[in-house]
Amino acid sequence: MSLGVKKSRIALFSLLAFGYAFLYGPIVSLMIYSFNESRLVTVWGGWSTKWYGELMHNQQILDAAWLSLKIAAISASFAVVFATLAAMALVRYKRFRGRGSLLLMLTAPLVMPEVILGLSLLLLFVAMSEWLGWPAGRGQTTIIIAHMTFAIAYVTVVVRSRLAHFDFSLEEAAMDLGAKPVKAFFTITLPLISPALIAGWLLAFTLSLDDLVVASFVSGPGSTTLPMVVYSSVRLGVSPQINALATIIVTLVSLAVAIAGYVFYRQEKQRLKSLQ
């Protein structure tokens, strides 16, 4: 290896190190300070887990967390169903009426500012309850519908990229052997694309769990989600309890993603091996 190549290797490596420090530094600092004894968040007063204890007795946060988890689980599950339909339609049929508009409606939410999504959905819900009497009020149901809507777009990207490599002749073979299309889908296609569905579900779940803006617009009295509680307390400044909460969320999400990632990695490796 020449000196020039080695030098550029070192430069690239240190650049990456800086980049990752930038990405992870803030999260790590927040996690460390969640164990800070002192109420003054930037003064170190020794190690303590008292903020975690207080958090466990904060009924407002616990209620909001439960509501958010419920909304995230329900909206992610429905989003995966719709996104799978959409991805199947887009991958299998290259030409149909409405393909262009379907593609547009599935990509625009990826970049659409949340304030617009939230406001427009709220106005729709108000009009619907005026004309149809449903939804009667705003709350859990309207937040679920809103979260489903943007999650469908994200999950479709994940499922579609998996289906793009899917060998549809497997499904055809099953149908040639007499399986009905629905059965062929559930016994052949679904198991094979399940990693993408799980990844999509996780993505939709975390997006919902994280959403402040859209939920603020479409929620009603009595349905305060976790990000809304976090936001209102964060606006008043840094709070050690929120640091503790953030640490719990970040740890759980990272663990889930890391485990899922590892399982898929293993599966993929095995699949490549079995192909050889």
């Binding site: 600092s29 927040l30 769990l209 976090v230 936001y231 840094v238 953030a246 969320i249 970040v250 990272s254």
Partner: peptide, 12 residues
């Protein structure tokens, strides 16, 4: 994947 709100908050 981890919370956007929390990551912004960390910078405060």
């Amino acid at each position: 994947w981890t919370s956007f709100l929390i990551r912004v908050y960390a910078w405060i």
